[in-house]
Design a protein around this nucleic acid. Structure first.
Lengths: 345, 345
DNA sequence: CCGAGTTGCGTAACCGGTTACTCCACTACT
DNA sequence: AGTAGTGGAGTAACCGGTTACGCAACTCGG
């Protein structure tokens, strides 16, 4: 009871102090301290206050490993992704952390090569070893069919973030890329464009397929279906957008508007237009998808479709911790900037 | 649900199987299994092989929490950063993981607001709680003076990645921003520019101060010191680069070349030039710093200085695990593209 | 004033590894 | 043959929490 500075000094000794130390100081058993730490009932008001004060005063923090070992939890969530746009990753990670912060969970990053033959094995032993509380899969690794059986075998909760529902609802957060791409189609049609082209993403990506079919279906709905020659395949990269743009603009029937399945490619198309001496948007309208920062770094600034990536990350964490029910679909939004205008008549 | 592998099925039962299970199967004590798992001597050849086979066969993985609890290690490294460029972060994270992969360590991301008053407390309780094996500080949080006393008090190894040595060598990996900025100065001078301007970063960032002083000192060395009016303050953002560019180009004495302390601002300057009807590089040479992807997304592509971010991350992990000695300075490199040319004479 | 039902708390056995200590068998040397 | 030395293997006590179980004291209705 005669404590001021001397014992605080010894508290900082190697390894810190344990629950039993606190218990001894309070003159109770470690069980009572445990109950107080976890906010469980079964401790008298007096005792509780005394213990809380000691915990506060000595800066005691329970050790996650010991808690985990005893309870089977790990306070660890993994984020598994393969190497897409860094901005996507940061937003997603931020979102995941938004919901994890209060629960004391830590987020570990686990990048993967989708074509790595050891993909599954590495993941399995990682999850096994750390006994993770949950795993979030994003970007294109999330589409791997073998994830579900693996995770079910391991008995670890998981959530996939993707462009379209891949699992039952509680196991996925979907971005509604299809509907979002439809917004771009509406915009172009409403501006009066009829000679429209599209630069699609690689068909091995679900997001690319969704964006393409959403865009095409909406145009068809307006009775303005695209000629197949006006659909160019891209790789979601700047270079492929540039190439597609050159091919379209140098082709027999140059379009008045181009929708690219992501901003990188849209910027490539813009650059192809500029190199060909065309002015955007006067001679060519360009619309992208993602609304990453590059959209506002180019001149003129890119009209694009925004997917609420960070929000999707937040929803994914919430789902994983089973603290969110109901639908988890995050709708996209059209951001009109300066690369879209009516066609020259 | 009938499986041909009945025993594999029971192995996968809740919680998986433990070291003592393996020991029982092999007819030895758990100590021997432990020795085999850790590759330590003290086990006979026969026994070792038998145990290894059983481990393999049943897919046994030791549980990190239990190992950690017993040994005091956690197999966890934290990456503490505040919110700079996402591309920097991804490269850094990749680099950190490059060296961590083989050691079985996991990387947890811990983003911070540098001005968050609870910064230190959150970090302290996080490290305390998870008993991390080490912490890597990058971006501008790494410059906080209170980090060293905190980490020393906690007794946890740490490494700072910064533009300049902040601690003793084994505690920091330095990027040599000063020398790298000098490369830009040499380049501009060698091209023949004498009317040179600079857009600096915010002086609260060490990297900004280093880049500025490195650039200015080198020019001074050539006897071509900059007039103070040709040094504009920026915020490392696109918008601030744009503003600085407008101010410089609209000023009384427009420069023939501009060095910006990062690519974002350099692109802003380029855009200011384009809006003012100037052609890059014919009317204005622009050089950036970082070599992030935006440098090749603009037209013409940006001449810039590359800092080997990923490599610095790798070095940081190695240091942390005390598997690297010697100097850990990663020199920058000038990447000449299309935004630099001799001044029009 | 007595048994039943709380409430508060201590004891000890876990969780799944590691490791100091001990014992035993077997070789090697005087 | 006796003994010191050596390597393989088991026992049990940790690491720092959680929790089933049990015991006392205290309340309360009849």
């Amino acid at each position: 009871m005669t404590s001021t500075h001397d014992d605080e000094r010894t508290d900082r000794r190697r390894g810190g102090l344990t629950m039993r130390d606190i218990a001894a100081l309070a003159g109770v058993s470690s069980k009572s301290v445990s109950l107080v730490v976890n906010g469980l009932p079964g401790v008298g008001e007096q005792t509780r206050l005394r213990i809380q004060e000691l915990i506060e005063q000595h800066g005691y923090t329970p050790r996650a490993q010991a808690q985990g070992l005893a309870t089977g939890r790990a306070f660890l969530i993994a984020h598994v992704f393969n190497n897409p746009n860094p901005e996507y990753l940061m937003l997603m990670q931020q979102g995941l952390l938004d919901a994890l912060e209060e629960t004391g969970h830590a987020l570990v990053s686990f990048p993967m090569q989708r074509d790595d033959p050891q993909f599954l094995d590495r993941l399995r032993s990682f999850v096994d070893r750390h006994r993770l509380d949950g795993v979030v899969f994003t970007s294109s690794v999330s589409e791997d069919r073998r994830i579900r059986p693996l995770m079910e075998d391991l008995g670890v909760p998981y959530v996939r973030v993707a462009a379209k529902a891949l699992d039952t609802r509680p196991r996925s957060v979907v971005g509604g890329d299809r509907a979002a791409a439809g917004l771009a189609a509406e915009h172009l049609y409403a501006l009066g464009h009829r000679e429209i082209a599209m630069v699609a993403g690689p068909p091995s990506f679900l997001s690319a397929r969704e964006r393409q079919s959403g865009f095409l279906a909406t145009l068809e709905g307006f009775g303005a279906a695209l000629a197949p020659s006006l659909i160019k395949g891209g790789e979601y990269t700047f270079a492929s957008g540039l190439a597609a743009g050159e091919s379209l603009l140098g082709g027999p029937q140059p379009p008045t508007a181009v929708f690219a399945a992501n901003d990188e490619m849209a910027v490539g198309v813009m650059q192809a237009a500029q190199r060909a001496g065309l002015r955007v948007p006067n001679d060519l309208t360009v619309v992208g998808f993602d609304d990453f920062s590059i959209a506002t770094r180019v001149f003129p600034r890119l009209t694009t479709v925004r997917i609420p990536t960070r929000e999707m990350g937040r929803l994914a964490s919430l789902k994983l911790l089973q603290r969110a029910q109901g639908t988890s679909c995050a709708p996209g939004e059209l951001i009109i900037r300066e690369t879209s205008a009516p066609p020259r008549s």
